[in-house]
Amino acid sequence: MSNPILQAQNLHKRYEKVHAVQGISFDIQQGEIFSLLGPNGAGKTTTISMLSCLLSATEGDAVIDGHSVRTQADAVKRVIGVVPQEIALYPDLTARENLMFWGKMYSLSGAHLKQRVAETLEIAGLSDRANEKVETYSGGMKRRINIAVGLLHEPKVLFMDEPTVGIDPQSRRRILDTVLELNQRGLTVLYTTHYMEEAAELSRRIGIVDHGKLIALGTQDDLTKLVGESDTVRIGISGVNDTDALLAALTKLSGVDHAALEEDELVLQATNANAHLSQIISAIGAASGQVKSIKVAEPNLEAVFLHLTGRALRD
């Protein structure tokens, strides 16, 4: 079964005052979509930057398609495609000019380059607007061209760093469908996100990252088992003066494993939550709070993160 195209082994990245990545190890099977899930600042981008040979690892190594990122950077760069979180395009150039330029940076030329530009424009669904400057595009269209650039040289592994940040739901849906379609064609994808739903939809295996550490790794079933039968309860509240006292009171309640505040919403991890709702609401009332909404969800990745870190995923 094991046919890893990427093996990250004890990757560390230390800066002067920050230990940004602290011994991350994982592998990705050929043809797999693997997600790294974690909040902003968890170390996802630093990890991808090391795997892309943009940053040198302070310690550890990664092998991609048989090439070490430490010693064979050029070979690694030929087999990976990188889709950065930022729109790394030239706004004054048209989409076609951007793709032609980036294709040349991957040593494509002539008819093959033109063919790949046409194919990636097709994948991005922007063939009819290829000759317009990128600066005139919507955020979603820019994201799609951003992805197209990463596909130009037909990489074996595509690194996608939060590719849906800041775009509308429709464009997001289109990008997720594109990732699934590319994967069906055989492309291996390393996908980072802080959206639990995206990781859940795209990946069979997920690594959860926090504070530079890989705190959990496995299939969704493996991960949700970590929280047992806990449900996630989200309660919209207002009027609470002392939220710390409320959180402390809630975690003392029977059946409540974790409690956190996310803006005006309490996020609780509770076993058999429906049976404990009255107690929870009473505690909120005792803290002079008013309940505005209640949602109870079955165990999911967010519950896993809350369970593992004591914080909501978007904290």
């Binding site: 930057s49 892309s52 040979c53 943009l54 050029d74 760069k77 030929r78 990976i80 990188v82 950065p84 979180q85 930022e86 729109i87 790394a88 395009l89 030239y90 980036w102 940076m105 991957y106 040593s107 650039v149």
Partner: peptide, 13 residues
């Protein structure tokens, strides 16, 4: 700043 430099450096150049 726009990350095109990093993208350039992620290519085999």
């Amino acid at each position: 700043r726009h990350w095109t430099l990093q993208r350039l450096m992620s290519t085999p150049t």
